[in-house]
Design a protein around this nucleic acid. Structure first.
Lengths: 204, 204
DNA sequence: GTCTATAATTCGATAGAC
DNA sequence: GTCTATCGAATTATAGAC
């Protein structure tokens, strides 16, 4: 408990983890090279194995951190007990857009690696029954009036928020957008997604 | 023009391409092994290079085919001149769900590879100005009443349709769904997405 | 056209000096 | 703890027999 956490990247171990996070998240497990990580960290290749034993063990750490970062946004809404459904949707949209503007490669990294290795990562995610028993899910269920599965509404919120970041290179091309244009659209979505969500619910 | 196309997989070249399509689409460029492709095709490794010269050249063929398959669904809606906006949305949702049920790895493959190599694949896509000048885009623009960027509406349709397939391993886990349950949800979305889209437009 | 055998390179990991 | 040097396995690609 008495950690000596002076700075984030002060120790060699932290420098390697920071570099690994950057390289793995950008290129994925298979395309990432341990030599790239070592160079990015400004240390020698041997040190990587000295601290983390293998590429896979280092990757697992990065994967778990990234998975937690991604699910924490949704988890934050689940822990809000007394807020309304629309407030939770607004919270999710806002927090995801803010987080993904700084981490645009995160969703496709997570979803690719889970798909490549479901049995390995689909556990230890801590939200197995957590979602289905949350007040958020109950609110979703009420909003559907029994007409559709509550998961549809959750899919819609997650889709409209996260997908544009996954498809951004394609969207920017077909929409003839520069990066600032795209960022502006994402900012607009923060306030529009709750409105759209409300329209969907009212139209059921 | 006078092709001798007897069967799809009759020739060795076609067998290799079919195997490559399967392995590359499932695992991506970096994780795919030419040996896996050769084994999947039931031929020797040397034959792969005899027909396609290199892993990368074979990959480029698969990538272009997959990119075309993915964009053709959207392109189909762009070519519908006289149908209404809601009809086009229904067409997109139906065709994407049908296609992605048979090719669940397709979207994440395309979007991952484009992200890994934007400058290489973002060209030759044939829909640069095609979208912005289409009657579909004009209809989207009219529907917004000048309140939001028309791309938002396109993003919403694509998101709600495609994203669930990208995130299916995660969604099936947190929603406690088996594969048939998930497929049923996707079938429901074919008819719900046009309704939800209409609600969004009316709520603007 | 198809195969076996192998070359050439890359990559993850380790031994050993300091 | 950190480095240089190198090993061994895996991978792409090719040479050459049939």
């Amino acid at each position: 408990m008495a950690k000596k956490k002076i700075q984030s990247d002060s120790t060699t171990e932290e420098k390697i983890k920071t570099a690994a996070r950057k390289v793995f998240t950008k290129k994925g497990y298979s395309a990432a090279r341990t030599r790239d990580i070592a160079e990015e960290a400004g240390i020698n290749l041997a040190l990587l194995n000295y601290y983390f034993r293998s590429k896979e063990k280092l990757f697992d750490i990065v994967m778990m951190e990234n998975l937690q970062k991604f699910l924490l946004v949704l988890g934050g809404a689940l822990r809000e007990e007394k807020s309304s459904l629309n407030e939770k949707v607004a919270l999710i949209a806002n927090n995801y857009v803010d987080m993904l503007k700084s981490n645009p490669d995160l969703p496709i990294f997570i979803l690719s690696e889970i798909r490549a290795n479901p049995e390995k990562f689909v556990h230890n995610m801590g939200i197995k029954g957590l979602l289905l028993e949350s007040s958020f899910f109950k609110q979703l269920h009420q909003a559907t009036k029994g007409k559709i599965h509550p998961l549809h509404l959750l899919m819609n919120v997650m889709s409209m928020t996260v997908f544009p970041f996954i498809a951004s290179p394609l969207l920017q091309h077909v929409g003839n957008l520069k990066q600032p244009d795209f960022d502006n659209l994402m900012e607009e979505r923060k306030k529009m997604i709750p409105i759209w969500f409300d329209s969907i619910v009212k139209g059921l």
